[in-house]
Amino acid sequence: MLDFSELVLNTAEPVYAQINEFVKRKIFLGKVKKGDPLPSRRELATLLKINPNTAQKAFRALEEAGLVLTPKNTVSILYFDEELLLEIQREMTADIVAEFVKKLKENKLSFDEVTVLLRQEWEKGEKE
């Protein structure tokens, strides 16, 4: 079952969006597979101390994003095709790079300075 106990909610984004992001990240990191069951809406609400309508909204958002299927009269399961997986991978990577570049620009670093620093850091990691 998809374990939501690691999800620590922040107060900056809508709760359903955080749940959506959490599931995408699990998929991206390969920690879950197609067909894994999700907790019930009530279990999710209790675990995260959110109200049942928010849990419902999160499930709907996941279904709309094509990440979750809820067959009739049974538990919801994770579902994604290759195309969606590639899209998530692109999105997650692009997000990291965008955030990284934004911070570098805030620190007034030039592209050339960054490439030098990046190479140093990269190679340091490889030597260790």
Binding site: R42, A45, T46, L48, K49, I50, N51, P52, N53, Q56
Partner: peptide, 14 residues
């Protein structure tokens, strides 16, 4: 307070 919020979350039907 947190226990109560959890009890509340788990018992509401929506």
């Amino acid at each position: 307070r947190q226990d109560f919020m959890q009890a509340l979350s788990g018992t509401l039907t929506g």
